[in-house]
Amino acid sequence: MNIERLSLDQLRVFVQVADSGSFLAAARKLARAQSAVSYAIASLEEQLGLLLFDRSGYRPQLTAPGEALLADARQVLDHVDSLQVRASSYARGQELEMALAVDVFFPLDCLVDLLQRFRAAFPAVTVRLEVEALGAVAERVIDGRAMLGILGTLPTTPPNLMRITLPSVRLVAVVAPHHPLAKVKGRIAEKMLLQQTQLVLSDRSELTARQDFSVHSRLTWRMSDLGTKHALLRAGMGWGNMPLHVVKEDLAAGRLVSISTIHHPPQGAELPIQCVYKPDHRAGPALSWWLDALANLGSLEAQPAAGSA
């Protein structure tokens, strides 16, 4: 067996014969002489040291090894075709990868909608997505790990980043209905708030490490995952700020209740959302698409699909 001498053309002929059902039909599809197709298959079989087709009948039938290797051949050709598309795109100035850092408070439905539209526009571009909180989003843009960031929980924008203002997210302070704070009528006094455990997102960056934002209790539990914070709030483990779009169903079903303090009005507060990127980063077609798509967002609700009511 001499697999090093295998050619992509041999694999394409192999797949075409299997798909067409005969050497003659494959020759027509490939615009070649039947003898050329037969020779390519015979050479491939010789190099592999096994028969791919049983030729004893009216039409060639895949052998057991042929059936097994057909899937491998398709996979090799798929990878090669993908490489060609990506190389051609890069030669035209299109990025091969889009690296994004997104704040945990950014609505997931909106993010999924943007990613679906991006994939339709740039099917050959891979996406690397990191969901972070506080300074970690900006830090990834500054150090070059992300080409673009969507900031929410960081209250200030680093001065060395360009920014685009996006629609805001509404934040509400919530507790479980059996939590002591849920029993307070009206605005909760600052002294009482200080005595209750606050669930807070932790900062995994050096940019804002050891800084607290919107922390109003002496006792805090910190976590890096918004889903964990959400679960702990519903379990009555403390109080905390959450995006309204995340807890809307819980509030409607009574699994969580909103609270009012000097820092948290009963209707919630608007959290500014910004897109940030480095001014010296060359904006190829993929990054330009994201900058335009984000700048044109009228809201952070997922856009309805074309043709839907």
Rank of each mutant, 00 (worst) to 15 (best):
M1V: 11
M1K: 09
I3M: 14
I3L: 14
E4P: 12
V15L: 04
A18V: 10
S20R: 01
S22D: 00
F23M: 07
L24W: 11
L24Q: 09
E46G: 11
E46D: 09
Q47P: 12
Q47F: 14
L48V: 11
L51K: 07
L52I: 15
Y58H: 10
Y58E: 15
E67Q: 13
L69K: 15
L77T: 14
V80K: 12
D81G: 15
S82F: 15
A87S: 14
S88V: 02
A91K: 10
R92D: 07
M98C: 12
A99H: 11
A101Y: 03
A101F: 02
D103L: 02
F106V: 09
D109M: 06
C110N: 03
V112K: 05
D113L: 04
Q116N: 07
F118S: 03
R119A: 02
F122Y: 14
L129V: 03
V131T: 10
L134W: 00
L134K: 08
E139A: 04
I142L: 11
A146F: 04
L148P: 04
I150P: 02
N160W: 03
R163T: 04
I164S: 05
V169M: 11
L171W: 04
L171V: 11
A173G: 10
V174R: 05
V175N: 10
V175R: 01
P177L: 03
P180N: 00
A182W: 00
A182Y: 05
K183E: 09
V184G: 06
K185Y: 13
I188T: 10
A189Y: 12
E190T: 12
E190R: 10
K191M: 13
L194P: 05
T197V: 11
E206Y: 01
H216W: 03
M223N: 06
D225S: 01
D225E: 11
H230N: 12
R234C: 15
M237V: 07
W239G: 02
N241T: 09
M242C: 02
P243D: 02
V247D: 00
E249T: 12
V257W: 01
S260Y: 02
H264L: 11
L271V: 10
P272G: 10
Q274M: 05
K278E: 08
P279A: 12
D280F: 00
D280E: 02
H281R: 13
G284E: 09
W289M: 07
A293S: 14
A295E: 15
A305G: 15
G307P: 13
